[in-house]
């Protein structure tokens, strides 16, 4: 397919009896940000390792920028920037030295390299600590350097494997912002995460992965449509919740009512239109509603819908 920076077909990998990746297909268009969303152990790292040529595939095929990627690829890997899940930097080298070393390894020379190193130090917000040894950095700073190394050579496809795990909210936001910026500048991104909000915020398309399989794939809207256009209305009530539940079920737009502690959860098609009537029904049943919250469907709900379990436990 033309216009795709990455095509992965039929990826499969077992470790002994465990099938870690079980027939995964996906593609990423030029400049697109694609997310692999799934819980721990879903097979995200295994999949990304095969795509980068680090791990031998049991079967399947990966093409990046028109060139097949295998474990023995050399030049073809230059199109890829890889940010491993675990921080991988040289602690006894400074941020600048870390970047400079990998710049050389990717064949960047002289002026171009030092200019780009300076640029990346700005992007990852480490310009003022550039010459400090990275072992002195905080966890968040190390994470950012970890990412900086991956995007240094301006790869056409940047792969980030759970880049925000274990960082403070501030660093996390900085990371998400820089990914957004890179994406705006035209870099294609493969982003794996188990955080629903990150996938929603960053990704043009998302593949939902569990037990080594992509269960569903598409834009946020497409995925949400799988659940049906049902909003989740949470009502806090004083008591008599059973009576209220009974009354609400009589409304035509309501699909499901469940009692939760201190209130009710109502799955309803078109919450905005139905809400006034729902409140009337509750009042008619003699139930006092103290607060109402409308939750539009999200990828979390999609995941729940597809797997019957929560994304995080």
């Amino acid at each position: 397919m033309a216009g795709n920076i990455l095509e992965a077909r039929g990826l499969r990998k077992s470790f002994g009896d465990l099938v870690a990746v079980d027939g995964v297909d996906f593609h990423i268009a030029e400049g697109e940000t694609y997310g692999l969303l799934g819980p721990n152990g879903a097979g995200k790292t295994t999949a990304i390792s095969m795509v980068t040529g680090l791990l031998e595939k049991d079967s399947g095929e990966v093409v990046v920028a028109g060139r097949s990627i295998t474990t023995s690829s050399t030049d073809a890997k230059a199109a890829i920037g890889y940010v491993p899940q675990d921080i991988a930097i040289y602690p006894d080298l400074s941020a600048r030295e870390n970047l400079d070393f990998f710049g050389r390894l990717y064949g960047m020379n002289g002026k171009e390299r030092s200019a780009r190193v300076g640029e990346v130090l700005e992007i990852i917000g480490l310009a003022d600590r550039a010459d400090d040894r990275s072992e002195q950095f905080s966890g968040g700073m190390k994470r950012r350097l970890n990412i900086g190394i991956g995007l240094l050579h301006s790869p056409r496809l940047l792969m980030l494997d759970e880049p925000t795990v274990g960082v403070d909210p501030q660093s996390r936001n900085a990371i998400l912002e820089s990914v957004e910026r890179l994406s705006q500048e035209g870099m294609a991104v493969l982003y794996t995460t188990h955080y629903m909000e990150e996938a929603e915020r960053l990704c043009d398309r998302v593949g939902i992965i569990d037990h080594g399989k992509i269960l569903a794939e598409g834009t946020r809207a497409e995925l949400v449509a799988l659940v049906g256009q049902r909003d989740r209305v949470r009502m806090s009530t004083n008591d008599r919740t059973e009576a209220a539940a009974e009354a609400l079920r009589s409304h035509a737009a309501v699909d499901e009512v469940t009692a939760s502690d201190g209130g009710l959860e109502v799955l309803v098609r078109g919450a905005a239109a139905a809400l006034p009537r729902l409140l009337e029904l509750a009042a008619g049943a003699g139930v006092g509603v103290t607060s109402v919250e409308v939750v539009e469907p999200n990828l979390e709900a999609v995941f729940l819908h597809l797997t019957g379990k929560a994304l995080r436990d």
Binding site: G53, L54, P84, I149
Partner: peptide, 15 residues
């Protein structure tokens, strides 16, 4: 042990 081996192996060079 510190993960940089994977980084090296992901770079465009022979293993």
């Amino acid at each position: 042990e510190n993960g940089t081996l994977n980084r090296l192996l992901a770079a465009p060079m022979r293993r």
